[in-house]
Simulated assay, not measured.
Amino acid sequence: MRQALVPVVAWSLATGAAVTLSWWGVHSVMAGTAYDPPRAVPLTAAGPTAVSTPPPLVPATRRPEPSSPPPAPTPSATRSAPSPSPPAPTGAPASSPAPAHAARLRSYEITGGRAVFSVTDTSASLVSATPEAGWQVQTWSQPEWVRVTFTRGTQESSVFYTWNGHAPTVQFDAR
């Protein structure tokens, strides 16, 4: 009995040591990376919206720094947001149109998820694509178009932006 037990104990100890060593090696490599879920842009309306200043993006491999309370405002810094354009000179109209290159965020909630795009007068780019539970997302991007497709089984729905020689246009497809 003792002779049969010695190889089993030796095998168990060797396997335990190998698993521990492997786990420690993988853990030390993966400790510097973080796979956080994508951060969705907060929206207040169900349809497309325009936001002039998007929130800053944080890479998924770096955790954001803990925030400290903002300093108390001083009398010279009482405005809550920077002005979008410099003050108009005397005799000029009080408001000026936004620059032609200003990006607008457009959000589309379709079957399977939500896609958010940054759209200018000459192009569009994907900001985020968030699938609903049970759905998967695929994205394609080329110099003249970008496509987001949500799939679940045989169901498929897409948002497709094109701007090849024209202003960006959006198309939807569901199958």
Rank of each mutant, 00 (worst) to 15 (best):
M30F: 13
T169W: 08
S52M: 13
T162K: 01
E132D: 15
A98S: 14
V116T: 15
P89V: 07
V58P: 02
P38Y: 03
H101G: 08
G47S: 07
Y161L: 10
Q142Y: 11
S22P: 01
T149R: 15
W23M: 10
S125M: 11
V51Q: 11
V148L: 06
S118A: 12
P87W: 04
S158A: 15
F160N: 10
V26I: 15
P69G: 01
Q171S: 13
Q138W: 11
R147M: 11
A98L: 14
T139R: 10
A72H: 09
V127T: 09
P86F: 11
A34M: 15
T61L: 15
Q138C: 02
P71Q: 07
T74D: 02
Q136M: 10
E132G: 00
G112S: 00
S68V: 11
P93R: 12
S107M: 00
P71F: 00
S76K: 14
A17N: 06
P99K: 07
L57A: 14
A18E: 04
V116M: 09
A31L: 09
V137L: 07
S118I: 00
S67C: 06
S96F: 02
Q155L: 07
P66L: 07
D173W: 04
T49M: 07
V8T: 13
A72I: 13
L21F: 11
A60I: 10
V170C: 12
P84Y: 08
S85L: 14
P168M: 00
A46D: 14
P99Y: 03
L126Y: 01
T122H: 06
A94T: 14
F117M: 00
S28T: 08
F160C: 03
A174E: 08
V41W: 14
P48K: 05
P64F: 04
S80I: 12
I110D: 01
T44W: 10
R62H: 07
P55N: 06
P38E: 12
A77F: 13
P168Q: 01
D36T: 14
P93H: 08
V51D: 09
A129L: 07
L21N: 11
W163M: 00
V58K: 03
V119P: 05
A72W: 05
W24A: 15
V19D: 04
A102D: 13
S128P: 03
F172N: 01
V58F: 05
A10D: 12
A174S: 12
S157V: 01
S96R: 12
A14N: 03
V19H: 04
G153S: 05
R152E: 01
A167R: 13
R63S: 15
A129T: 06
L57I: 02
A17P: 03
H27S: 15
L126S: 00
P56R: 08
A174C: 02
P66T: 04
R39A: 12
T130G: 02
R106T: 05
A133S: 09
G32C: 13
R39H: 10
R175Y: 06
P38N: 06
G91I: 07
P42E: 01
V29I: 12
S118M: 08
S118T: 01
A31G: 03
T20R: 11
Q138L: 12
E156I: 00
G47W: 00
T162R: 05
V146D: 13
S83G: 15
V51T: 15
L126G: 07
A98I: 06
Q3E: 13
P131F: 02
S12F: 01
V127K: 03
D36R: 15
